[in-house]
């Protein structure tokens, strides 16, 4: 058995309440050191030793990711939380204690930064049909057909460019309400399940008091603008837990 580390907090008094336990159903424990508490569970060493075998196994990744996420969320419900990356494992609890001790400052800095704040995600998509202007009647000649096709292709490119420009403006506006912001690469269509292209995949660290404002802004832009927006959250501050800001 080795020790899987989910998240670090301070003033955690008890193990977060997660019905299904941790990764692989393992019982959650707290490992405390230097005023910090790490939420951990035992995992099977074999499973994590040969991670290579699981790298392309979406079912395995999904179950570990969901368990990881469940624990991090549960901690974040009541406390400032510094989430760790998936599959962070140590040989034993002593190693975890050593890390808490030695990286005390980095953890504290992250916890200070995210305290009272949540991460929100904003995604923007090209609006369906934006590219398809006036398919209209049948071209009267071969030359007219080619011209119409050329215009349609250009219109498609232009629609994406317009959407990207608008998404930049949305990103800037949301960032202005946020403490920090970060851009994730746009997700592939096979992930989003949408046929429209994603043009923005932003993450924003927002004071809880400003969350309503962010929501209102996104709603407003979605109504008045010409791109589709999607707001997700609140998330634990995954995107803002980097050691170095």
């Amino acid at each position: 058995m080795i020790t899987y580390l989910y998240a670090v907090g301070r003033d955690l008094e008890r193990v977060p309440d997660v019905g299904s336990g941790g990764v692989g159903g393992g019982a959650l424990r707290l490992v405390g050191e230097a005023g910090l508490q790490a939420v951990v569970s035992d995992v099977d060493r074999e499973a994590f030793e040969d991670l290579d075998a699981h790298r392309e196994d979406l079912a395995w990744l999904a179950s570990v990711a969901r368990a990881h996420h469940g624990v991090v969320e549960a901690v974040g419900r009541a406390h400032a939380v510094a989430p760790l990356a998936l599959a962070t494992v140590y040989l034993d609890d002593d190693r975890v204690r050593a890390v808490l001790r030695e990286s005390h400052e980095a953890f504290t800095a992250v916890l200070d930064r995210v305290d009272g704040r949540d991460e929100w995600g904003v995604k923007a998509y090209v609006r369906p049909g934006a590219a398809r202007a006036a398919a209209g009647e049948r071209p009267s000649s071969g030359a007219a057909y080619l011209r119409a096709r050329r215009d349609a292709l250009r219109a498609g490119d232009a629609a994406v460019a317009d959407a990207e420009r608008e998404a930049e403006a949305v990103d800037a506006a949301v960032s202005a309400l946020a403490v920090e912001s970060r851009r994730h690469p746009p997700q592939d269509r096979s992930l989003t399940g949408r046929t429209e292209q994603m043009v923005l995949n932003g993450a924003y660290l927002v004071d809880r008091s400003a969350a309503a404002e962010v929501r209102a802004l996104v709603e407003e832009r979605s109504r008045t603008g010409s791109i589709d927006l999607e707001l997700t959250g609140p998330w634990a501050p995954y995107s803002f837990a980097g050691g170095a800001a």
């Binding site: 071209p139 000649s141 071969g142 030359a143 057909y145």
Partner: peptide, 13 residues
């Protein structure tokens, strides 16, 4: 040529 363009366009259509 215009003729080629017309023919090609018609064929593609």
């Amino acid at each position: 040529t215009e003729e080629q363009e017309e023919d090609l366009g018609t064929a593609l259509m």
